[in-house]
């Protein structure tokens, strides 16, 4: 600041100094918000790990991963996380089976075929679907979708993974459609004109040129959808039953990791007890699963982005 008072410094330089200080302040502010986000993530991981460590002192990692029964709150205790992982994977898989084709087709339609007016009408409606509370979706699965499915397949139990899986898929469609559509619309018009000028039809342009051009964005949409499905709680907690069950059969009832956490966390648990700690072990598993899907997704994305 002494320089500011120095008469030899030109007013222009003084202005530069002030500008530099301001610039530094902004830079620092931005850095802080970035660090804050990282800090929160690290804090979550720290809590999960620190509570899970005593759990794993009790239960061997081998039992945790190979046992297929999960009964931490019963008198005969079993800690086989696979009973919960199977439920999570099955419901997620069903959801993706519904959401990926539906979401992708919606995105292609909105981006390449719909007129401006249609797009401006449909998009907000789709985004409204995102705003529906998941608890509503849960009852929708339990009271409407499962009874409908029972008409086709009478042996279906009231609590099953198929109904909530499908509903979860419907819930995710707007996520995929919206992100994938943004990616496709971001493809420069020159690319479309190039394809049309070659005599391609609209459909050929959309499938053979625009989709591959936007593929990394479309895969990002899928990754988002997977994370959303793996982490989804209310729908499966309400409509899939809360009984941990090692099965990949969608017509059976089962609990997902999230459903277990929510059901146990709501009961009276002794703080520091093994049942309490099991939540953190389950939470850590969930985090690692999401992380794994993200890493796979990024790798796939990179590979595709290079080929195309």
């Amino acid at each position: 600041m002494a320089k500011l008072e120095n008469p030899e410094v030109s007013p222009r330089l003084a202005k530069n100094l002030r500008r530099n200080i301001l610039e530094r302040c902004i830079e620092f502010g931005l850095l802080c918000s970035g660090i804050f986000a990282i800090f929160i993530t690290l804090a979550i991981i720290y809590v999960l790990v620190s509570e899970a460590i005593p759990f794993f002192q009790h239960v061997s990692l081998y039992d945790f991963l190979t046992d297929t029964v999960w009964t931490p709150n019963y008198s005969i205790k079993h800690y086989g996380i696979m009973a919960l992982v199977s439920g999570t994977l099955t419901t997620t898989f069903i959801a993706l089976l519904v959401a990926v084709p539906l979401g992708t087709i919606t995105a292609i339609y909105l981006s390449e075929f719909a007129t401006h007016k249609v797009r401006e009408t449909i998009k907000p409606v789709l985004e409204l679907l995102v705003g529906v509370p998941t608890v509503v979706f849960g009852y929708f699965a339990l009271m409407l979708v499962t009874p409908l499915l029972q008409k086709i397949y009478p042996d279906l139990t009231t609590f099953n993974m198929l109904g909530p899986g499908i509903v979860m898929g419907i819930m995710i469609v707007p996520y995929i459609a919206s992100v994938a559509e943004d990616a496709m619309r971001a493809v420069p018009m020159a690319m479309r004109e190039g394809a049309y000028a070659m005599g391609a039809t609209r459909f050929q342009t959309a499938i053979k040129v625009i989709t591959p051009a936007a593929i990394s964005g479309i895969i990002a949409a899928y990754i988002l959808a997977i994370s959303r499905a793996v982490g989804e709680t209310m729908i499966v907690a309400i409509a899939a039953g809360q009984q941990p069950n090692f099965t990949f059969n969608p017509v059976e009832s089962a609990a997902t990791i999230t459903a277990y956490i929510v059901s146990v966390a709501l009961g009276d648990l002794e703080h520091g007890g093994i049942g309490y700690q099991s939540i953190f072990a389950a939470g850590l598993t969930l985090l690692l699963m999401t992380l794994m899907f993200n890493i796979i997704g990024h790798a796939v994305r990179k590979k595709f982005a290079e080929r195309y």
Binding site: P188, A190, M191, G194, K208, V209, P212, A213, I215, Y308
Partner: peptide, 10 residues
């Protein structure tokens, strides 16, 4: 042929 080269992502 366009103003800016517009090869397809292939």
């Amino acid at each position: 042929v366009f103003q800016k080269p517009n090869p397809f992502p292939k």
